[in-house]
């Protein structure tokens, strides 16, 4: 039986993890490779590395980092952040990334999704969407790391992304992100139920119950979180044992 996936997300800047972590047992908690390998060992099902490096020059170090990750980590991983051309994608996949995630650049140039899917297959193309529920009760797409609002509704963009060849949706609710009050169940459920591709829910995880909820009530295929794992508020092995006890199919 296909299991629900637990995915830690690591933010990378200039080749280092940001959002400090308190992994005392790591030689270098700022090293994405070491942290990624530790998560893999603890039972993470996949990893997402999000590069938030601002300058183009420094981004070139990303492919070297991806190679190091691929060399040491024995589970699949996605790399995102600033990918705007098929060339960007090729460099990362050839370095050993399994998938790339696209966000703002794909919104501005939807053909990018199609180009990536044709060049490398839909399974390599994760469409990341940052979304926010406005006062009118609708979820809208935001760009540039949540700084720029658009008039396009999240569901419509996700649906278009599927038609263009996206293989998965990584859905981040800005309303929930950082609250630790749980995932956005309504929009996650709508995408999970109405789109034919897997949906990774992100934003708001603060307790093990929240993962059970997003899997059982919103039918997400995967749950992604950052700080609760980095700060060891939840251990992946405990989370999986909890989910298994709840009857959620997980890899243990």
């Amino acid at each position: 039986m296909l299991t629900k996936r637990i995915i830690p997300c690591l933010d990378i800047k200039d080749g280092r993890t940001v959002k400090g972590t308190n992994f005392v047992d790591l030689r270098d908690a700022g090293d994405p490779v070491e942290l990624g390998a530790l998560y893999a060992q603890q039972g993470a099902d996949e990893l997402v590395f999000l590069d938030i490096t601002a300058t183009v020059e420094k981004r070139k170090t990303l492919s070297e980092l991806v190679k190091r990750i691929a060399r040491h980590v024995n589970i699949p991983f996605t790399v995102g952040g600033g990918i705007s051309t098929v060339e960007d994608m090729s460099v990362l996949l050839n370095s050993g990334a399994d998938k790339v995630s696209v966000n703002t650049a794909a919104f501005k140039n939807p053909q990018l999704i199609n180009d990536i899917a044709l060049a490398a297959g839909s399974q390599c193309c994760v469409l990341a969407i940052d979304t926010k529920k406005e006062e009118d009760g609708e979820w809208y797409v935001y760009l540039n790391g949540g700084r720029t609002k658009t008039d396009i509704k999240c569901f419509d963009w996700a649906k278009q992304g599927v038609e263009l060849g996206a293989g998965e949706i990584l859905l981040t609710s800005m309303n929930n992100d950082g609250t630790k009050a749980g995932f956005a169940l309504d929009i996650t459920k709508r995408l999970s139920q109405e789109l034919p591709i897997p949906v990774i829910a992100s934003g708001g995880a603060g307790a093990m119950q929240h993962f059970a909820d997003v899997f059982e009530l919103a039918y997400a295929d995967a749950g992604l979180a950052a700080s609760i794992f980095h700060f060891k508020e939840i251990e992946i092995s405990d989370l999986k044992a909890y989910l298994q006890q709840r009857g959620v199919a997980v890899r243990v």
Partner: peptide
């Protein structure tokens, strides 16, 4: 999906651990 599992749709591609 519609042929294999008409009642509970499956996502295609299958992605993950089975």
């Amino acid at each position: 999906s519609e042929e294999i599992s008409p009642d509970i749709p499956i996502k295609v591609p299958q992605v993950g651990w089975n």
